[in-house]
Design a protein around this nucleic acid. Sequence first.
RNA 1: GGCCCUAUCGUCUAGUGGUUAGGACGCGAGGUUCUCAUCCUCGAAACCGGGGUUCGAUUCCCCGUAGGGCCGCCA
Length: 516
Amino acid sequence: MTTQRPIRTRFAPSPTGFLHVGGLRTALYAYLLAKKEGGTFVLRIEDTDQSRSVDGAVENLLETLAVTGIEPDEGPRLADVDHDMDELHVEEVGEHGPYIQSNRLDVYKHYALQLVEQGDAYPCFCTPERLEQMRTEQQKAKQPPKYDRHCLSLSEEEVVRRIEAEESHVLRLRMPADQTITWEDAVRGTVSFESNLIDDQVLLKSDGFPTYHLAVVVDDHLMEITHVIRGEEWLSSTPKHLALYNAFGWEPPIHVHVPLLLNPDKSKLSKRQGDVSVEDFLDDGYLVPALVNFIALLGWNPKSEQELFSITELVEAFSLEDLNKSGAIFDRDKLNWMNGEYIKQHDTMDLLMHAHPFYDEKGLLEEAAKRVGASNKMDQIVMEEIAKSLSIEQTRLEKLSQVGEETDYLFVNALNYPAEDLIWKKSTQEDTVLYLNALQDLLSERPEDTWVTDALEKDVISWIAENNWKNGDVLWPLRVALTGKPKSPGPFESLWALGKERSLERISRAIELLAA
RNA sequence: GGCCCUAUCGUCUAGUGGUUAGGACGCGAGGUUCUCAUCCUCGAAACCGGGGUUCGAUUCCCCGUAGGGCCGCCA
């Protein structure tokens, strides 16, 4: 066994412009392991593909990571240096930088050349066209697709001449022959590949940028990463990486290949079949802790029956041994349930902060402002109106994007519904008018400041009993009068949210409707 | 096609050489209730197949089968 090093994990996304939920889960596991073991969680940006670089992607990624709370101890970080410009700047913290690969080009070049000197890598001048043709032929002949080492047999003079002529070329790894490359994967156990079947991977591209394979090995080593936690799709690249560690004489990290997140059809989770970016989920009204909790349980299980975990509890419970091997379908139904649980458990006022943008988006702030005569939609009084709505619908929401759907009757002035909806089951029109009139009398005498739901409910219920009426006969019409809907939140919370004046108006209107 | 990985309810999963194979989501039924939602109770629902090993395999081994991943100067 090697000496125990302090645990260092990393999340190394390529900046595509958004954070994939699968990426978030990988990041989460790396974060959890580091935190659990008192180690360091590193963020590294893998932007070695010039053609795929996206403007502002790094900033965007850092922002998203920041809202999820999975923040790196080392790596790029958002710095708000220029307050006037309100622009995002990226700074770096840590002793192992730079953490953005495009700023480390000379490092990769240095190590690539070292391999050439050692004879573990060689220049290749083959054109993309030739390579493509070669692959097609191999495919046709049912051969494993693999570089034919055409350029390995070039004479030293020719290589020197072509390089001096600045001919476009790459550097390829010279894969060792007749070896079985084996490693102990933390989730999969012993995994092995035959080196003869593995391609001579390009390490340095003709534009001077490294490929993922070179960069990841060099950086993980230089950054002293102890655990490489990544998706299963990297499993078959690992022998190439191991060959590199071996060529450099470096000790490889522990590899942890976590199972894939799957579409309902069991293919790799993709944009094609719904939302995959963390931003999408947040915009759809999922709460960060719910999303984090949900993805944590996709591929990891604490061996207990607990399902709801705060991030702190996840850190406490996390263990590499409890990772699963098989892919997990991303089940929206269960996510919705879990999100609903988080919404229910949230303090209403605190939840309001998260829900506020969704009310705003639907124009409900403006409507409320207009109705209460507030000068603008950010007034305290508007917030109070929204808070009423939220507290009524809180147990009915699965996603914050649904706000206002169950409580739309609070935001309109005139209700539109058929008069017969007011009459409960076997009750009659005459009786219903009687009940509504009685309710109107009762409620109009009651001071508004005693319209606290519980107290009001108790009083009305006992008043109904005193009159020898039935709850359904009286409460159904009251509820429909207030909400205009056969299915809706209850009458007492509606009375409370609407307030005395609007409630009485609606009751009068119901009576008129029945009389007509 | 080659290589590799995986396999318990529809889904996420627990579990063991002998269990009534457990939980959760979803689904169904009932209860609470003025409706809906919440909440509570109950229910249906799984060890991929075939060979071994064994007194006994869902569990261990092998072979199938199925699903998935990778096979780029993408990551």
